[in-house]
């Protein structure tokens, strides 16, 4: 028996909106720790890891570890039917091949349930070792989304270079070139507006903008994004989900031909 009640149901709606275009089908894993997912895009280039800790749910019952295969497009369609203020409860009986999403309006005057068929998904689970990152960049998530969107109208790839002066995002394409430099800025009124660079070592890496743009669909989940960079290993683009966990995207840097 599985029953997870999430008062802030909009979080789950935002999670699905942020990954449904990157990943088609995925197994959601439910254990005492929480509700999690790890999945690759269909071309096995990018990886997404989600954790919603059990403590973040108002009610969390998971009698045994369970893995539920879902088509994320279909799940997103169902969650779109929940209001932004609705409480969302996920329910599944042992051995059932369906999951039920229950949506309750905040005033309890409307209750809806949507039942979705589960799928058998043969997915690999990858081990992600702890890594030491050369540079960790924390910036407003909307700013990062803006830069990725702007640069993708000029070029296909972005070079992210971190030095003690700041972080530079550069691209080039047929029509020209573009550079955006963000300096460390911690003297802001609100901490979520700060740009912080934790930089033991300078680093410069090239990434496909198509994927970074896809990751920025998680922007509504968090005011800030944390970008961890190290040469020759995948970048981690992390959006913290308040009080509950995170969504992390992994993408390997491109290699010069």
């Amino acid at each position: 028996m599985l029953e997870l009640r999430l008062v802030q149901g909009s979080l789950l709606k935002k999670v699905l909106e942020s990954i449904k275009d990157l990943v088609n089908d995925a197994n959601f894993d439910c254990s005492a720790t929480g509700f999690s997912l790890q999945a690759m895009d269909s071309s096995h280039v990018a990886l997404v890891a989600l954790l919603l800790r059990s403590e973040g749910f108002e009610h969390y019952r998971c009698d045994r570890n369970i893995s539920m295969g879902m088509n994320l497009g279909n799940m997103a369609k169902m969650l779109k039917c929940a209001g932004n203020d609705d409480i969302i409860t996920l329910k599944a009986d042992d051995g059932s091949d369906t999951v039920t999403f229950m949506f309750e309006s905040p005033t309890q005057d409307k209750i809806a349930d949507f039942e979705m068929r589960l799928m058998d998904i043969d997915s690999e689970h990858l081990g992600i070792p702890e890594a030491e990152y050369h540079a960790i960049l924390i910036m407003p998530s909307a700013e990062f989304a803006r830069i990725c969107k702007d640069l993708s109208s000029i070029g296909d790839t972005v070079v992210i270079s971190v030095t003690k002066e700041g972080v530079k995002f550069s691209t080039r394409g047929d029509i020209g070139t573009a550079n955006v430099v963000c300096r460390q800025n911690t003297t802001v009124d609100k901490p979520e507006e700060a740009t912080v660079i934790e930089m033991p070592e300078p680093v410069s890496l090239t990434f496909a903008l198509r994927y970074l743009n896809s990751f920025t669909k998680a922007t509504p989940l968090s005011n800030t994004v944390t970008i961890s960079l190290s040469s020759e290993i995948p970048v981690v683009v992390e959006y913290k989900i308040a009080e509950m966990g995170y969504i992390r995207f992994y993408l390997a840097p491109k290699i010069e031909e």
């Binding site: 096995h44 280039v45 990858l126 081990g127 296909d156 790839t157 992994y250």
Partner: peptide
């Protein structure tokens, strides 16, 4: 520009 490696080149099945 450049070659895009798969994420599976970096992380192994666990």
């Amino acid at each position: 520009r450049g070659v895009q490696p798969s994420i599976t080149n970096f992380y192994r099945s666990s």
